[in-house]
Structure formats: structure tokens, C-alpha cells
């Protein structure tokens, strides 16, 4: 994507695949998360820290909202029962919290992309919302424009504080260690995608579904996370999307069967997220 290309086709880059897209998609990586299976154990988040060289910022900076977790587990508590307000135990509901693992939704019509003044974030032919660290100047417009609040800014250089001497050996060499002043976010483990694609290309074939996993998917003890190519109708992820009648290109899913649990977060905003969640079923 040369600068000339960016300047000429600026509005073009806004298009998702349902509007014809701005280029031919090779793949369209997507995800499906079953919240029924999610136990909120945080293994995915920890795996993400290890895989993607995420800095550990410490308590103080966490409190200042400067945390760098690309995948966070959001907790939701149901409204407390009004009748039981006086009861001291009622502030926690008896079923416990609901968990929602939240990572970059890799929107097809991402709101972060058109606002970047230097085109450091753009859409790849893999349907990923890319962040090019070298190009990023840290204007933080993208973060402001992201309805999911999934972009994280490096307020400091964490290299020395986060990985003191022997710990730097655990850094993943397939990924940059981001420096101060750069925005970052979940990449759907693009380094793993890259390796799988390179391997497939060397063997003159297409990437097979399930050939590789994202680190969160790999570490999930309950296999709540399913990842794959949504252009491949046979893949697990597109099968799940189909079963739950969630479709791209819609701001509201018209479902006949109310038993189907699939939904996308903030799909009414027309950002076209490529992560589908399956609602948790509760016996109340």
C-alpha cells in the first residue's frame, strides 16, 4: 500500500467486504466465542501477554487505565435483586459474574482506520485491521474512535521495567517490542497467520482450517474460542456463524429462532465486527 495509493483511494479503504471491499480478500479471519463455555479463567489473556510481548505495567498504571492487555476479560454482574438490597450478600448475585473476553473485533468497516492521519492502521487482504508500528505517530485518534476501547497506547517504554534481565529471553522474536508513543492492539496473532501462510505457499496449497491457532484459542481450557477463515464455507468458524444465523453486512440480525445465541457486540454501529459471541444461557 503505497502512499500514492492511500491518497487516491482514501474513501475506498473504508469499505467492508459486504460493500465489495477495497481489494480482493484472500482470507477473512474471524472468530466465534461461546460464552456458555467461558469460565473467566483469564488463560487467554495470559497467553496473549506471553505471545505478543505485552508489557506488564503494574498496579499504579493499571489504575490510571494505562494497561496493555490486548485481550481483557470483562465482568458483568446482573442487576441486584431489589427485594434483597438490605441483605449484605446480595451485592454479588448467586450465579456469579458473566464473563466476556474482549479483543480487537477486527471490524470490516473499522472506525479506527479512516481517522489515522498517517495510515498506520489499514485493512489487509486477510480482512485484518492492521497496525503498523513504524508508521504510527501516536496521535491516538484511532483509540478515541474505537467503540470497543480495544486499542492500547504505549505511554511509556516498558522494555526495561517489564522484562528485566533474564525475562527478556521470553520475548517472542516474531513480534516487535513496541516502544513509547505507539498504539497497539490485538492482531489475531498475525505472526502465526504469517507462518501458516508462508508454509502453505511453500507447499503450493491453501491454508487448511485449524492448521494453526491463535494463542488465546490455544490456551482456552474449555475451547470457547473458535478461529478460522470466514471465506471458507467449510471452516468451523463460518459453520458456527451460519448455525447461529449471524451474517456480515447487517446492523441487526433478523433471527426467526430465538434459541440461537449468536450476536456481535455493538453491531448496530455498523462497524462490522468479525467476532461473534454466543450468549450465556442461565437457568433463572
Amino acid at each position: 500500500m503505497s502512499l500514492k495509493n492511500i491518497l487516491e483511494n482514501w474513501s475506498h479503504y473504508r469499505r467492508g467486504i459486504e460493500q465489495g471491499g477495497h481489494h480482493k480478500y484472500e482470507h477473512m479471519w474471524g472468530m466465534a466465542l461461546d460464552l456458555n463455555k467461558c469460565i473467566g479463567c483469564n488463560a487467554c489473556s495470559v497467553a496473549c501477554y506471553a505471545e505478543n510481548n505485552l508489557a506488564v505495567v503494574g498496579h499504579d498504571r493499571f489504575a490510571k487505565n494505562q494497561v496493555m492487555h490486548w485481550l481483557r476479560i470483562e465482568r458483568y454482574w446482573d442487576e441486584p435483586d431489589l427485594d434483597k438490597v438490605s441483605d449484605s450478600t446480595s451485592q454479588y448475585q448467586e450465579h456469579g459474574a458473566s464473563f466476556l473476553p474482549m479483543m480487537c473485533q477486527q471490524c470490516n468497516a473499522a472506525t479506527c482506520e479512516p481517522v489515522c492521519p498517517v495510515a498506520a492502521t489499514y485493512h489487509t487482504p486477510d480482512g485484518l485491521n492492521a497496525q503498523v508500528y513504524n508508521r504510527c505517530i501516536g496521535s491516538r485518534y484511532c483509540s478515541n474512535n474505537c467503540p470497543y476501547r480495544l486499542r492500547y497506547f504505549n505511554w511509556f517504554s516498558f522494555y526495561e521495567s517489564s522484562w528485566p534481565a533474564p525475562l527478556h529471553l521470553q520475548l517472542n522474536p516474531d513480534l516487535t517490542v513496541r516502544d513509547k508513543g505507539v498504539m497497539e492492539k490485538c492482531t489475531f496473532c498475525v505472526q502465526r497467520i504469517r507462518v501458516a501462510k508462508d508454509k502453505a505457499k511453500m507447499e503450493n496449497r491453501k491454508v487448511v482450517d485449524g492448521e494453526f491457532q491463535t494463542s488465546c484459542q490455544q490456551s482456552c481450557p474449555t475451547t470457547a474460542i473458535v478461529f478460522g477463515d470466514m471465506l471458507d464455507p467449510e471452516s468451523k468458524v463460518s459453520t458456527l456463524w451460519r448455525t447461529h444465523q449471524v451474517e456480515l453486512g447487517k446492523t441487526k440480525q433478523a433471527k426467526q429462532n430465538r434459541e440461537l445465541r449468536g450476536y456481535r457486540v455493538f453491531e448496530a454501529l455498523n462497524t462490522e465486527p468479525k467476532v461473534m459471541y454466543m450468549e450465556r444461557v442461565r437457568e433463572v
Binding site: 500500500m1 492492521a130 508500528y133
Partner: peptide
């Protein structure tokens, strides 16, 4: 390839 993410990581 001319995609940024093909080479930049």
C-alpha cells in the same frame, strides 16, 4: 506483495 503487514511485524 505490497501489503505493510507482509513484511512489518
Amino acid at each position: 506483495p505490497s501489503d505493510c503487514w507482509k513484511c512489518h511485524k
